[in-house]
Write a protein that binds this DNA or RNA. Structure first.
Length: 449
RNA sequence: GGCCACGUGGCGGAAUGGUUACGCAGAGGAUUGCAAAUCCUUUUAUUCCAGUUCGAUUCUGGACGUGGCCUCCA
């Protein structure tokens, strides 16, 4: 298949033609969740964006190796454990389970691999040893720090230089660090906290290390795409580069860096500290997974996306409208159509094309109808068939079908008698209960709002 | 303070050196007992200033504004 996928590479800050290392097999790593608390809509954006990229890559390459990690050792998990009076395992298992449910309801495909940090402690210890041996890291009082000044390209991804970083430093400087910018590879654990034996202390790895270790293990020392939210550029991804390139004596780690923009609420970043969090579970229960998914894809992935009821209601009526032409079908989509997605994953442009297909299909064009359905499925919509979608809407509605059908009969009788006042009254009564009555081609149908 | 992104019609949101998507909302019409749904038609825009150009919303510079990163964060 010929194609020209373009991606905006955060490293060069330019849109570039994508050329994988292996022309038939693509390698992609995306930073997954730290499992300490319910994932929120901001996390969902990352999930959906990289899932969509995964789907597009699968469409044009024979093989796509997509790794998304789970961070299950972290200070925030320890805090959550103490705060909620639960064990570390209880917390991480519980949140991982919710995360997987969220992925499913958003119709995200399973990544090729989903490695956990705690299953790779040995490799992280080995990498730390190696970095010390090569003089990129040093031990101090049970801690191991990466020496930032030893890596000459430090700041290349985030476009920062060490002088500026020092000048604006808000970092808590540990007395053991040689340089305030140095970051931790290994730290000792307090008694009772999760810890593993190591040459330096009973402790745990620093956050950045797992991604370096796991990406190398499953994708190689150099791979094609590394993704995550915009806020991971510094320090997380910068530090991954420093560790991996130093240890491998290589210039490159990931060839393309892809970062998604934030979900905002009232134009402000959704974040725990601002307390403006909406969980994925909450959003999905209210609007359904695919409405949430469509909303997340309604703006280009690098732009901010403001989360509000109007946006969601809008997407909901779009999905509702599109379901009228739902079809179990699998028509091959032309490259011309996919081209919009290949241009830096332009999902809003692609959605516009779906609207156009809908219009044509609705006029009776059978081929457009098939392509319309395939296009929806390509970006992960229509995971529920029409019945399942109608059933979904019945959840949280305390009204029985029998009651609705009885009311429809009463209304029909009223209409036949010419009592339109009563007929309208019944229709309004049902509308107040979120039931919409439609008279079409001599038949009366109903559906939930 | 350093760095980055953005500023498109009533709203959301793409694209583009000249013909100006798409959705929602609005207007008119078809249909309907009236509606709803659907169909047809349709109004409205590129923050400001300067430069490059035959021509800029698009390129360059500046101003103003908004948000983000520089500490954990998708």
């Amino acid at each position: 298949m010929t194609h020209n996928l373009k991606l905006t590479n955060s490293f060069t800050r330019k849109k570039e033609l994508f050329k994988p290392i292996n022309p038939k097999s693509v390698t992609m790593y995306a930073c997954g969740p730290t499992v300490y608390d319910n994932p929120h809509v901001g996390n969902a954006r990352s999930l959906v964006v990289f899932d969509t990229l995964f789907r597009v890559l699968k469409k044009i390459y024979e093989n796509v190796n997509y790794v998304r990690n789970i961070t299950d050792v972290d200070d925030k998990i320890i805090e959550a454990s103490k705060k909620k009076n639960k064990t570390i395992n209880e917390i991480t298992e519980e949140v991982t389970k919710i995360f997987h449910q969220n992925c499913k309801s958003l119709n995200c495909l399973k990544p090729t691999m989903e490695p956990k940090a705690t299953s790779h402690i040995n490799e992280m210890v080995e990498m730390t040893k190696s970095l010390i041996k090569k003089n990129f890291a040093y031990e101090a009082n049970g801690h191991v720090y990466f020496s930032v000044s030893s890596f000459k390209n430090y700041g290349a991804l985030s476009n920062k230089n060490l002088e500026d970083l020092k000048a604006g430093s808000r970092i808590e400087v540990s007395k053991f660090k040689k340089n305030p910018m140095d970051f931790v590879l290994w730290k000792p654990s307090a008694e009772g906290d999760p810890g593993w034996e190591s040459p330096w202390s009973r402790g745990r790895p620093g956050w950045h290390l797992e991604c370096s270790v796991m990406s190398e293990k499953y994708l190689g020392k150099q791979f094609d795409i590394h993704g995550g939210g915009l806020d991971l550029i510094f320090p997380h991804h910068e530090n991954e580069i420093a560790q991996s390139c130093s240890n491998n004596s290589s210039e490159k780690f990931s060839n393309y860096w892809v970062h998604n923009g934030f979900v905002t609420i009232n134009k402000e970043k959704m974040s725990k500290s601002l307390g403006n969090i909406i969980s994925i579970t909450e959003a999905v229960n209210k609007y359904s997974g695919q409405v949430v998914r469509l909303a997340l894809l309604s703006a280009h992935y690098r732009q901010p996306l403001d989360w509000n009821d109007k946006l969601l209601e809008n997407q909901r009526s779009t999905i509702e409208k599109w379901y009228q032409l739902y079809d179990e079908t699998n028509e091959e989509i032309s490259l011309e159509l996919i081209d919009t997605l290949l241009d830096d994953l332009n999902t809003p442009g692609f959605i516009a094309k779906i609207h156009e297909l809908y219009t044509k299909a609705n006029k009776g064009d059978k081929k457009s109808k098939k392509i319309f359905n395939s296009a929806c499925k390509l970006i992960g919509l229509f995971d529920l068939n029409k019945n399942e979608w109608e059933n979904f809407k019945k959840i949280n509605k305390d009204i029985s079908e029998d009651f609705i059908l009885k009311k429809i009969e009463e209304r029909l009788a009223a209409k036949q008698k010419g009592d339109y006042k009563l007929a309208d009254q019944i229709r309004n009564e049902l509308l107040n209960k979120d039931v919409i009555i439609e008279d079409q081609k001599g038949k009366t149908t109903w559906k939930f709002k």
